[in-house]
Design a protein around this nucleic acid. Structure first.
Length: 283
DNA sequence: ACCCGTGTTCGCTG
DNA sequence: TCAGCGAACACGGG
Protein backbone atom coordinates (compact mmCIF):
# COMPACT_ATOMS: atom_id res chain seq x y z
CA UNK A 1 0.00 0.00 0.00
CA UNK A 2 2.59 2.54 -0.94
CA UNK A 3 2.14 6.22 -0.22
CA UNK A 4 4.53 8.12 2.03
CA UNK A 5 3.59 6.30 5.27
CA UNK A 6 3.89 2.85 3.72
CA UNK A 7 7.20 3.72 2.10
CA UNK A 8 8.45 5.10 5.43
CA UNK A 9 7.60 1.78 7.10
CA UNK A 10 9.37 -0.05 4.27
CA UNK A 11 12.45 2.15 4.83
CA UNK A 12 12.48 1.39 8.55
CA UNK A 13 12.10 -2.32 7.91
CA UNK A 14 14.89 -2.32 5.34
CA UNK A 15 17.15 -0.39 7.72
CA UNK A 16 16.66 -3.03 10.40
CA UNK A 17 17.07 -5.94 8.01
CA UNK A 18 20.14 -4.67 6.18
CA UNK A 19 22.34 -2.98 8.83
CA UNK A 20 25.85 -4.35 8.41
CA UNK A 21 24.72 -6.94 5.83
CA UNK A 22 26.17 -7.89 2.48
CA UNK A 23 24.24 -9.11 -0.56
CA UNK A 24 25.69 -12.49 -1.49
CA UNK A 25 23.56 -13.35 -4.47
CA UNK A 26 20.60 -11.89 -6.38
CA UNK A 27 17.89 -13.65 -8.36
CA UNK A 28 15.59 -11.73 -10.68
CA UNK A 29 12.39 -12.66 -12.46
CA UNK A 30 13.22 -12.48 -16.18
CA UNK A 31 9.57 -11.81 -17.03
CA UNK A 32 9.55 -8.67 -14.88
CA UNK A 33 11.87 -6.84 -17.23
CA UNK A 34 9.92 -3.61 -17.06
CA UNK A 35 10.66 -2.91 -13.40
CA UNK A 36 14.44 -3.10 -13.79
CA UNK A 37 16.84 -0.34 -14.79
CA UNK A 38 18.86 -1.17 -16.71
CA UNK A 39 16.04 -3.21 -18.21
CA UNK A 40 18.03 -6.42 -18.16
CA UNK A 41 17.31 -8.32 -14.95
CA UNK A 42 20.57 -10.33 -14.97
CA UNK A 43 22.59 -7.12 -15.27
CA UNK A 44 20.86 -5.73 -12.18
CA UNK A 45 21.50 -8.97 -10.32
CA UNK A 46 25.20 -8.88 -11.22
CA UNK A 47 25.53 -5.23 -10.24
CA UNK A 48 24.15 -5.81 -6.76
CA UNK A 49 25.87 -9.09 -5.91
CA UNK A 50 28.68 -8.58 -3.41
CA UNK A 51 27.54 -5.12 -2.30
CA UNK A 52 27.34 -4.09 1.34
CA UNK A 53 24.52 -1.94 2.75
CA UNK A 54 25.45 1.54 3.96
CA UNK A 55 22.18 3.42 4.50
CA UNK A 56 18.50 3.47 3.56
CA UNK A 57 16.80 6.82 2.92
CA UNK A 58 13.33 7.81 1.82
CA UNK A 59 12.40 10.84 -0.26
CA UNK A 60 8.69 11.04 -0.94
CA UNK A 61 7.80 7.61 -2.27
CA UNK A 62 11.38 6.84 -3.35
CA UNK A 63 13.52 4.40 -1.38
CA UNK A 64 17.19 5.26 -1.81
CA UNK A 65 19.50 2.46 -0.74
CA UNK A 66 23.19 3.30 -0.49
CA UNK A 67 25.60 0.40 -0.96
CA UNK A 68 29.31 -0.10 -1.31
CA UNK A 69 30.86 -2.53 -3.72
CA UNK A 70 34.58 -3.04 -4.34
CA UNK A 71 35.29 0.06 -2.29
CA UNK A 72 33.09 2.27 -4.45
CA UNK A 73 29.64 3.72 -3.74
CA UNK A 74 26.69 2.10 -5.48
CA UNK A 75 22.98 2.90 -5.23
CA UNK A 76 19.67 1.12 -5.57
CA UNK A 77 16.58 3.27 -6.04
CA UNK A 78 13.34 1.44 -5.33
CA UNK A 79 9.91 2.83 -6.16
CA UNK A 80 7.02 0.61 -5.10
CA UNK A 81 4.55 1.73 -7.78
CA UNK A 82 1.03 0.55 -6.95
CA UNK A 83 1.70 -2.90 -5.53
CA UNK A 84 5.38 -3.12 -4.66
CA UNK A 85 6.52 -4.44 -1.30
CA UNK A 86 9.74 -5.54 0.42
CA UNK A 87 9.44 -8.62 2.61
CA UNK A 88 11.99 -10.67 4.50
CA UNK A 89 12.05 -14.44 4.50
CA UNK A 90 12.17 -16.01 6.92
CA UNK A 91 9.94 -13.44 8.57
CA UNK A 92 11.74 -11.35 11.20
CA UNK A 93 12.02 -13.18 14.50
CA UNK A 94 11.58 -16.63 13.01
CA UNK A 95 14.26 -19.17 12.43
CA UNK A 96 15.47 -20.01 8.97
CA UNK A 97 13.88 -23.45 9.13
CA UNK A 98 10.33 -22.11 9.33
CA UNK A 99 9.33 -21.70 5.74
CA UNK A 100 12.47 -20.09 4.41
CA UNK A 101 11.87 -21.89 1.16
CA UNK A 102 8.44 -20.42 0.51
CA UNK A 103 8.96 -17.56 -1.92
CA UNK A 104 6.09 -15.06 -1.73
CA UNK A 105 3.86 -14.65 -4.75
CA UNK A 106 5.03 -12.17 -7.39
CA UNK A 107 8.57 -12.09 -6.05
CA UNK A 108 10.43 -10.17 -8.76
CA UNK A 109 13.85 -9.89 -7.13
CA UNK A 110 15.46 -11.80 -4.29
CA UNK A 111 18.46 -10.47 -2.40
CA UNK A 112 20.17 -13.27 -0.50
CA UNK A 113 22.02 -11.75 2.46
CA UNK A 114 25.03 -12.98 4.43
CA UNK A 115 22.89 -13.67 7.53
CA UNK A 116 20.85 -16.31 5.72
CA UNK A 117 17.81 -14.08 5.19
CA UNK A 118 16.35 -13.23 1.80
CA UNK A 119 14.77 -9.89 0.94
CA UNK A 120 12.05 -10.27 -1.67
CA UNK A 121 10.82 -7.44 -3.83
CA UNK A 122 7.21 -8.38 -4.57
CA UNK A 123 5.20 -6.54 -7.18
CA UNK A 124 1.99 -7.85 -8.65
CA UNK A 125 1.28 -5.18 -11.24
CA UNK A 126 4.89 -4.36 -12.17
CA UNK A 127 4.46 -0.60 -11.86
CA UNK A 128 7.43 -0.39 -9.47
CA UNK A 129 11.07 0.22 -10.36
CA UNK A 130 14.40 -1.16 -9.17
CA UNK A 131 17.12 1.07 -10.52
CA UNK A 132 20.85 0.59 -10.15
CA UNK A 133 22.45 3.99 -9.54
CA UNK A 134 26.18 4.13 -10.34
CA UNK A 135 28.15 5.96 -7.67
CA UNK A 136 24.98 6.22 -5.53
CA UNK A 137 24.42 9.57 -7.23
CA UNK A 138 20.70 9.72 -6.43
CA UNK A 139 20.63 13.51 -6.78
CA UNK A 140 21.31 13.08 -10.48
CA UNK A 141 18.11 11.09 -11.09
CA UNK A 142 15.35 13.10 -12.79
CA UNK A 143 12.68 11.38 -10.68
CA UNK A 144 14.49 12.48 -7.53
CA UNK A 145 15.29 15.99 -8.73
CA UNK A 146 11.63 16.56 -9.55
CA UNK A 147 10.49 15.87 -5.98
CA UNK A 148 9.21 18.69 -3.82
CA UNK A 149 9.89 18.80 -0.09
CA UNK A 150 9.04 15.75 1.95
CA UNK A 151 6.23 16.71 4.35
CA UNK A 152 7.59 14.45 7.08
CA UNK A 153 11.29 15.24 6.83
CA UNK A 154 11.07 18.88 5.75
CA UNK A 155 7.66 20.00 6.99
CA UNK A 156 5.31 22.09 4.86
CA UNK A 157 6.10 25.68 3.93
CA UNK A 158 2.65 27.26 3.42
CA UNK A 159 4.00 30.12 1.30
CA UNK A 160 5.64 27.70 -1.12
CA UNK A 161 2.61 25.40 -1.22
CA UNK A 162 0.30 28.37 -1.82
CA UNK A 163 2.48 29.60 -4.67
CA UNK A 164 2.47 26.20 -6.38
CA UNK A 165 -1.26 25.71 -5.89
CA UNK A 166 -1.92 29.14 -7.37
CA UNK A 167 0.00 28.25 -10.51
CA UNK A 168 -2.74 25.95 -11.78
CA UNK A 169 -6.34 25.96 -12.89
CA UNK A 170 -6.77 22.38 -11.75
CA UNK A 171 -8.91 21.29 -8.82
CA UNK A 172 -6.96 21.12 -5.59
CA UNK A 173 -7.17 17.35 -5.11
CA UNK A 174 -5.61 16.21 -8.37
CA UNK A 175 -3.13 19.07 -8.01
CA UNK A 176 -1.89 17.57 -4.73
CA UNK A 177 -0.85 14.41 -6.56
CA UNK A 178 1.87 16.37 -8.36
CA UNK A 179 5.02 15.23 -6.56
CA UNK A 180 6.72 18.58 -7.22
CA UNK A 181 4.42 20.20 -4.65
CA UNK A 182 4.94 17.77 -1.78
CA UNK A 183 6.66 14.46 -2.29
CA UNK A 184 4.77 11.43 -1.06
CA UNK A 185 1.13 12.55 -1.21
CA UNK A 186 -0.88 9.94 -3.10
CA UNK A 187 -4.52 9.34 -3.92
CA UNK A 188 -5.56 8.14 -0.47
CA UNK A 189 -3.80 10.80 1.59
CA UNK A 190 -4.93 13.58 -0.74
CA UNK A 191 -8.55 12.74 0.10
CA UNK A 192 -7.78 12.21 3.77
CA UNK A 193 -5.90 15.50 4.12
CA UNK A 194 -8.58 17.58 2.40
CA UNK A 195 -11.19 16.03 4.67
CA UNK A 196 -9.13 16.89 7.75
CA UNK A 197 -8.65 20.44 6.47
CA UNK A 198 -12.41 20.72 5.62
CA UNK A 199 -11.67 21.78 2.04
CA UNK A 200 -13.80 20.65 -0.89
CA UNK A 201 -11.54 18.62 -3.21
CA UNK A 202 -13.30 20.09 -6.26
CA UNK A 203 -12.27 23.65 -5.43
CA UNK A 204 -9.85 25.28 -7.86
CA UNK A 205 -6.36 24.99 -6.41
CA UNK A 206 -5.81 28.72 -6.85
CA UNK A 207 -8.96 29.61 -4.91
CA UNK A 208 -7.62 28.50 -1.52
CA UNK A 209 -7.04 31.23 1.02
CA UNK A 210 -3.78 31.43 2.92
CA UNK A 211 -5.51 30.11 6.04
CA UNK A 212 -6.85 27.14 4.09
CA UNK A 213 -3.42 26.35 2.67
CA UNK A 214 -2.01 26.39 6.20
CA UNK A 215 -4.76 24.06 7.39
CA UNK A 216 -4.11 21.77 4.45
CA UNK A 217 -0.37 21.62 5.11
CA UNK A 218 -0.93 20.77 8.75
CA UNK A 219 -3.54 18.17 7.79
CA UNK A 220 -1.15 16.46 5.38
CA UNK A 221 1.55 16.13 8.04
CA UNK A 222 -1.00 14.90 10.56
CA UNK A 223 -2.49 12.30 8.22
CA UNK A 224 0.97 11.03 7.30
CA UNK A 225 2.06 10.76 10.94
CA UNK A 226 -1.08 8.87 11.89
CA UNK A 227 -0.64 6.56 8.93
CA UNK A 228 2.86 5.69 10.10
CA UNK A 229 1.82 5.29 13.73
CA UNK A 230 -0.91 2.86 12.66
CA UNK A 231 1.55 0.58 10.93
CA UNK A 232 4.56 0.65 13.21
CA UNK A 233 5.41 -0.88 16.52
CA UNK A 234 5.30 -4.42 17.82
CA UNK A 235 1.95 -4.06 19.65
CA UNK A 236 -0.07 -2.28 17.00
CA UNK A 237 -1.51 -4.70 14.50
CA UNK A 238 -0.06 -4.24 11.07
CA UNK A 239 -2.66 -2.96 8.65
CA UNK A 240 -3.18 -5.97 6.45
CA UNK A 241 -5.16 -5.98 3.28
CA UNK A 242 -8.51 -7.47 4.10
CA UNK A 243 -8.43 -5.76 7.49
CA UNK A 244 -10.62 -2.88 8.62
CA UNK A 245 -10.46 0.26 6.49
CA UNK A 246 -8.30 2.61 8.63
CA UNK A 247 -9.16 5.79 6.73
CA UNK A 248 -11.62 8.56 7.59
CA UNK A 249 -13.20 8.93 4.15
CA UNK A 250 -11.20 6.93 1.61
CA UNK A 251 -13.26 4.04 0.20
CA UNK A 252 -16.18 4.95 2.48
CA UNK A 253 -18.70 6.08 -0.10
CA UNK A 254 -22.21 6.05 1.35
CA UNK A 255 -21.09 5.81 4.98
CA UNK A 256 -21.88 8.53 7.47
CA UNK A 257 -19.29 11.27 7.79
CA UNK A 258 -17.19 10.65 10.92
CA UNK A 259 -17.17 14.38 11.71
CA UNK A 260 -20.70 15.67 11.19
CA UNK A 261 -22.41 12.26 11.42
CA UNK A 262 -25.16 13.61 9.20
CA UNK A 263 -24.05 13.69 5.59
CA UNK A 264 -22.84 10.64 3.75
CA UNK A 265 -19.40 10.34 2.19
CA UNK A 266 -19.49 10.98 -1.54
CA UNK A 267 -17.25 9.64 -4.28
CA UNK A 268 -16.31 11.54 -7.39
CA UNK A 269 -13.73 11.00 -10.11
CA UNK A 270 -11.05 13.60 -10.79
CA UNK A 271 -8.25 13.11 -13.29
CA UNK A 272 -9.30 9.44 -13.56
CA UNK A 273 -8.84 8.83 -9.83
CA UNK A 274 -11.46 8.37 -7.12
CA UNK A 275 -11.92 11.16 -4.60
CA UNK A 276 -13.87 10.72 -1.35
CA UNK A 277 -15.23 13.63 0.68
CA UNK A 278 -18.02 14.91 2.90
CA UNK A 279 -20.18 17.35 0.91
CA UNK A 280 -21.37 18.97 4.13
CA UNK A 281 -18.10 19.44 6.06
CA UNK A 282 -15.82 20.25 3.16
CA UNK A 283 -16.33 23.69 1.67
C1' DA B 1 -18.22 -9.93 -18.35
C1' DC B 2 -17.48 -5.57 -16.31
C1' DC B 3 -15.54 -2.24 -13.21
C1' DC B 4 -12.13 -0.93 -10.00
C1' DG B 5 -7.39 -0.14 -8.14
C1' DT B 6 -2.20 2.97 -3.05
C1' DG B 7 1.48 5.47 -9.44
C1' DT B 8 3.78 7.37 -13.19
C1' DT B 9 4.71 8.41 -18.09
C1' DC B 10 3.68 9.36 -22.74
C1' DG B 11 1.39 11.40 -26.66
C1' DC B 12 -1.99 14.50 -28.15
C1' DT B 13 -4.62 18.84 -28.04
C1' DG B 14 -6.00 23.46 -27.62
C1' DT C 1 5.30 26.59 -24.99
C1' DC C 2 2.78 24.15 -21.90
C1' DA C 3 -1.03 22.74 -18.79
C1' DG C 4 -4.08 19.26 -18.76
C1' DC C 5 -6.34 15.21 -20.44
C1' DG C 6 -6.85 10.31 -21.50
C1' DA C 7 -4.60 6.10 -22.45
C1' DA C 8 -1.32 2.87 -21.27
C1' DC C 9 1.23 -0.19 -18.37
C1' DA C 10 -0.32 -5.51 -15.82
C1' DC C 11 -2.89 -8.29 -13.04
C1' DG C 12 -6.23 -9.69 -9.74
C1' DG C 13 -10.51 -9.07 -6.88
C1' DG C 14 -15.40 -8.15 -6.33
Amino acid sequence: MPELPEVEIAARNLRAWTAGRTIERVETDPRARRIFRPARPPAVARALAGARFQAVRRMGKQLLIALEKDGAPLGLASHLGMTGKWVRRPEPGRRAADGAAAAPRHSRARLHLDDGATLHYQDLRLFGRLRVVPGARFEALPEVRALGPDPLADGVDPARLAALLARSRQAVKPRLLDQRLLAGVGNIYASESLFRARIDPRRAARSLSRAEVERLGAAIVEAMREGIARQEGPEIAYVEEGGENPFLVYAREGERCPRCRRARIARTVQAQRSTFFCPRCQR
